[in-house]
Design a binder for these strands. Sequence first.
RNA 1: GGAGAGGUGGCAGAGUGGUCGAAUGCGCGGGUUUGCUAAACCCGUGAGCUCGUAAGGGCUCCGCAGGUUCAAAUCCUGUCCUCUCCGCCA
Length: 352
Amino acid sequence: MLDRKYILENADAVKTNCRNRGVAVDVEAFLRLELARKEKLAQVERLNAEANAVSKSIGQMKTPEDKDAKKEEGRLFREQKNTAQSELETIEKELDAIHRSIPNMSHPEAPIGADDQANLRRFLGKTPVPTFDFKPLDHVQIAEKLDLIDFEAGARVAGAGFYFLKNEAVLLELALQRYAVEILMQAGFVPTTTPDLARNEVLQGTGYIPRGPETQIYSIDGTDLSLVATAEIPLGGLLAGEVVEAEKLPLRLCGISHCFRTEAGAAGKASRGLYRVHQFTKVEMFAFTLPDQSDAMHQEMLDLECKIFDGLGIPYQVVDTATGDLGGPAYRKFDLEAWMPGRGDGGEYGEV
RNA sequence: GGAGAGGUGGCAGAGUGGUCGAAUGCGCGGGUUUGCUAAACCCGUGAGCUCGUAAGGGCUCCGCAGGUUCAAAUCCUGUCCUCUCCGCCA
């Protein structure tokens, strides 16, 4: 979330950014409320200061009569303070609602545009898209032939969108995790496995909304926990409330976690096979950096992604994601999109 | 699941209603002394917000959220976390 002071001081830039990202927010209303909040806060603090001064003087009073008189005076100040405070809270609540919907600033170099149309292809990976002199099978057909994935059993146990990996597919999944983690460890990333559940507080802190009609998140009934949608969530909460020495940054972490997504509203979208499932396992890169290290870290991560995919011989393209296409808290995002044979008409690039 | 103990500044650790934003030690910064280093000694040293050109002032913060009170680190309630013991289970 953007700092309130930052918004106040950079109102025009914030408004432009909202427009670029296609987010409709009343920034003017925010500015009005923020000024009102400050004014009310000053009033609360003034009353508090007076009440504190009275309280302090009571200890020094000699006679019970003097004490009682001062107590009464103090009580009056506290009452006024409480009134002002509840007015302040009303303002804050209204302010907060707007504040939450103001998106982070996008990177100055991110292409401006409403959707994928503005995304710019930066480059292709080392491996060319293969051509076959026969009709290739897609992963679902291959898996069926070799008894690698059981979608029906997954559906019996947990419903559509779940699956059992079997036989060599299990070894392949483990091998891929191990392969990625080894590359990341060489690059100085500390490997972790994370909790697959996190407090809703942590979800919100990392930009995910646990409940509501649009949510991608599974919540555990009767608790304040949700299933994580990516290791980014627990890793983001890893140092919540802690102070980190600047010299220790950047802190590089990679997390292996299961990822759970409801995929609400995703019915009908390319959902055959393993492309859009409710649970999968992912190796995630994550870093805590100073703001001026952020661009370099972003590049470092992209280079590692490329290394991983080049090493596997998987064709891919890297795109600059447009302002209007950035998810939640994103500042800047390169997407590495892998070639997916059998998807679309014979194959297409898709997010991995 | 049951019983108990505890969560205080970067760390350790005192503090049971007002003079406590908080003793003391360590650490850290500056200085004195000094072939160098160390030791010793002296001074300083939490954070956020806010007003002010500044000097400086005010508010808030003792896990978190409420409550009692003129006044809460201190009393009450809830909650989270840590530790010890017992039970149950992988």
